[in-house]
Every structure is written in structure tokens, then in C-alpha cells.
Nucleic acid binder design. Structure first.
Lengths: 110, 110
DNA sequence: ACTAACCGTAAGTTTAAACTAACCATTAAA
DNA sequence: TTTAATGGTTAGTTTAAACTTACGGTTAGT
């Protein structure tokens, strides 16, 4: 699996609102599948499918306890997205500065 | 527009591979629409539609120069996603530590 | 051994959104 | 004042993926 695939998986995974809802449910700590599915708009199998996508993107981890599957936030996926965004951060800040300077010059003209 | 909508727009925008390709084309600096569309797999109108989504998500800015529309990376959208990810960062690192400690204990048992 | 709880997967359907084609508006150049 | 270049939007189609239903496999308890 090449390095560029990593952030594609992660950003694709968090691009879906249902998957974000699942991800956010794990914000306070680990949960089983039934726990995650409880109160959600979609069925439990749908949740399972989303969990798989999130897991492949390294945004969550899974461990089994008896018959339960316990899911948890994985820092790796978060790190991957952060790293991707950092690629654009310098350029974006630079753009912002140039724009700010232009606006300054326009103020002086008035 | 409520605050929670912000990161939904941004993550949804970067969730699409074609939009990421556009976003990445702007990494090196501002470009016009024809420039962005050149060499891409989809038509120019498709690019225009994607640019609109990226703009509404504050991931890019737009200015006009004559008949050209010049697009550029916007730091605000990046900041919004970073802020969202930070919500999970502490929890995720905590999980990671607990797991690492467990693995340490298992090593000692051997 | 039987039953119940938990969860993953496969098959098939539904739906949201990505896409193209066509059109129109604006600006610059000839 | 044509002509060309640029790009936004609309309508309609296509397609990818989200979803449900049904099923089977595993583990814990009785």
C-alpha cells in the first residue's frame, strides 16, 4: 500500500456524515457495536460496514472481548490527515499574507 | 450558519477524490479554471461545480482578473478541519498509551 | 446441547451526488 | 462590433456507495 493511498482512505472515510457520527460517538471512549448503533438513524449492519471503512483508514481500532467488538479512536488516521493538511498550510498562510498586504495598500489609497 | 456545519462542509468537500485533485493543484500557487481543468479526467463544468463546493467549505478563495477566475488555497478551511481533529487527539493519544502499556506488560510476562 | 447475544458479510435495492451537454453572460482583443 | 476566451449554471443522466434484509459464525450462559 503506497503512502499516498493513506490520506485518500482517511479523508474518504471522514467524508461521510454517518461515519463522522460514528467517529464522534467514540470521542468519549471505546464502545461496542450495539452501543454505537443505538440511537443512530441506520441499521446495525450499516454501522458495521462503516466501521470497516473507518478501520481501514486507521481512524479507529478494534479489539474483541468475548462476543463483543470494541472500537476506539486511532491516532494514526488523525495524524495522516494532519500531515496532509500541513502540505498546504505554508502556501495557504502565504496567500493570506499577500492578500492582507494588498488590503493594507488599498486602505492607504483612500 | 451554525458552527458545527463548518467542518461538515470542509470534510465533505475533501471527501471527494476529484476535489482533492483540484485542491492539490493549488498547492504550488493560484490558478485559473482552465488551468485547473487542463489534464484532468473530468470536464470543465464539473471542475466549476467542485470549485463551488470547495469555496463554500472555505478551502479555497476566488478572485476575478478580467474574464479569468483565479482560485487559491484558503487557510480557514484547513484550520476548521485541524480544530475538528484536535477534539479527538487527546482521547486518541490516551488510547494509544493504554494499549502501549498493555503490550509492555505482555512482554514482561514472556 | 440448546439458547441467546453479538457482529460480520453477501446480495440486491435505493439514493445522493458526480458528471456531461447545452446554454448564457461577461470581458478582452481584433 | 464582431470574434474569441473564460467560466458559471441548469437539466438530465449515470454511477458509486450507502443502505436493508437475510444469513451464518462465534462466544457465553443455562
Amino acid at each position: 500500500m503506497s503512502a499516498t493511498v493513506q490520506y485518500n482512505l482517511a479523508l474518504n472515510a471522514l467524508g461521510d456524515p454517518t461515519r463522522r457520527a460514528i467517529f464522534e460517538k467514540l470521542e468519549k471512549g471505546p464502545l461496542s457495536v450495539v452501543h454505537i448503533a443505538k440511537g443512530m438513524a441506520v441499521s446495525r449492519p450499516a454501522v458495521s460496514q462503516h466501521l470497516k471503512v473507518l478501520r481501514e483508514a486507521k481512524l479507529i481500532t478494534m479489539k474483541t472481548e468475548g462476543t463483543r467488538s470494541i472500537y476506539n479512536i486511532d491516532p494514526e488516521g488523525i495524524r495522516i490527515i494532519r500531515e496532509y493538511l500541513d502540505r498546504f498550510w505554508d502556501e495557504a498562510l502565504d496567500n493570506f499574507k499577500v492578500l492582507a498586504e494588498k488590503q493594507q495598500r488599498n486602505k492607504h489609497k483612500k
